[in-house]
Design a protein around this nucleic acid. Sequence first.
RNA 1: GCACGUGUAGCUCAAUUGGAUAGAGCAUCGGCCUUCGAAGCCGAGGGUUGCAGGUUCGAGUCCUGCCACGUGUGCCA
Length: 618
Amino acid sequence: MSSKTAGADPIELLETAFRSAMGAALGDEYAETDPIIKSSQNPQFGDYQANFAMGLAKRLGRKPRDLAQEVVDALDLSAVAEPAEVAGPGFINIRLKPGALGHLLDAMDQEALGVQPDPDPHSVAIDLCGVNVAKQMHVGHLRSTIIGDAIARIYERRGRKVFRENHLGDWGLPIAMVIDQLRRAETDLDRLTLPDLDRAYRDAQLSARADVRGLARAMEPPVAGPHRRAELEEQNAGAHEAMENAKRTLVKLQQGDPSIREDWEKLIRVTMDAVYESYELLNVRLGPANNRGESFFRDRLPDVIDAFVREGVAVEDEGALVVRFEDRDRPLLIRKSDGGFLYATTDLAAVRFRVHDLGATRVIYVVDARQRDHFRDIFDAAKKIGWDRTADGAAAELVHIPFGSVLGEDKRPLKTRSGENVTLRSLLVQAIERGEKEVISRAEDPAAPTHGAPRSELQRIGQAVGIGAVKYADLSNDLVRDYVFNFDRMIAFEGRTGPYLQYAHARICSIFARAEIDPESLRDRAVLPDEPEEKTLALMLLKYGGVVDDVARSLEPHRLCTYLYELADAYSSFYQKCPVLKADEASVRDSRLRLSDLTRRVLQDGLDLLGIEAPQRM
RNA sequence: GCACGUGUAGCUCAAUUGGAUAGAGCAUCGGCCUUCGAAGCCGAGGGUUGCAGGUUCGAGUCCUGCCACGUGUGCCA
């Protein structure tokens, strides 16, 4: 504990003490061994425990309990804890002294709230959202956007420079197909609406996407009927023509044809304006500055190919250029046999840019789990050519966060009743409407703190509540799993939901509002957790910095969600049992006010890391 | 076919990355508002962690083999 910002997390303090005891009891070389300090699950085992003894005894061929006892005998924790006890097969249980708890909370009572800065001075690049400019955002974009934004906020909170990279689908054949389709339908691009665009996208897909596989299948035994075959052949002929048109349009676009170029820009303007509106509703920190999509990398693709050829990492195969891997059959195609580039080519250009130009030592892809294989190949190809090292020689880690799909009640990917993709906007509007409805109806109660508040404020709160419910529901699951989207459950506002956390926060705000106390004025008052509920709350508060650190490392925001729920839960129990403003003694009241203030700030800060607002009242 | 992923309470999910008696929420049942916000609190019931082996002081977690579901799978992105 040498640094000026002595960590508030007692785990560090205990680690230091244990290391020195292990050195003293077992020999200096053991002062480097990890004592494996964890907070205890069950209060009967104390507040913290050291779990090193079992594993270490195994390696030393000794009895774990004896080993544990020797270290305990050399341990001096008298300043902060009761004497440590050896229990079970060799666990060491530690119980903090109430006074120490107060001092640790004092140490935590700073702007950082116990969150430690990340020692890595390099930046982090996060690939998120990945909107396709040829169509409207749909539920598929929800997760990537809010998970990516939350992770970005967590890294920023720990002092890292973060580049949120919105890898727009704004170039290539699909765009050319849509432009073609719009021209064919003689759509006025100055009046282009999103439904027009979605229709054009779908029609373009239908007319151009040949049912090649269907045809191939129909030709294999058992051969499909002649009628079906003729139908497929006709489709394919039409598809072929549409595809050829699109390719010609793409060439013109690439050559800078002014008229095509103009249409392309109009198209992007229409979709992106709507995208920015959704960002606003979602409360994510994304805007035009984050756009770095396929069109940005288009000029770098030939150089990517050159590099792979020059370094001998890619080889020709059946006319295409591929990267092969030792441990799998599937190669990665980086150039088609007709000389065209693929999305893999763009992704490799992006890896290089993020590591070399942005200097990121962690490049995080928040892209759904279906692209697992793809990113595995991309990352391995990047490693083969050495693009996993920054200009100043630091190793860059490429990580894919393979999140699961949003499902409907039927356990199939979420669709509207008519089978269309659910637009993100309609989903957000619905969430906001329900949030507003709840907030407004509760404000009708004359006893409610929101009673008589202006409608505009109630709407603002309702939006925060509705969006908070959706975000918490999404972020609180382990990301790799699919999850069932259920509005009623996430907006029930009961139990483990976003609004529960917001409620706990608002309730603390109203304590200070009611008493007209400025929390700053209490900074010199002692905090003395005495009741069990106070102690539980205090221990929970001290975990915050460690949780943020853990989530930044593991990229599992649901751990932060769980923590915040447990904190709010601990506060609710405390609030029920321990009168704050009505405490019998002034010293108890002040102590509880400080506990309340710290809880409020951690809730607000933690919710902010999740991109969830914390209204003062609701 | 092959590869990857997921199987935990009636439902939706956790489980400090191998630690002590597998925990929450919803739903069900029973208590708590003339004292700081009941969107709340306290309590009860509910489990062969898909199945079978294995590794070790200890396995929901690691290994092997099955089963079920899902996703991906050479010139779309």
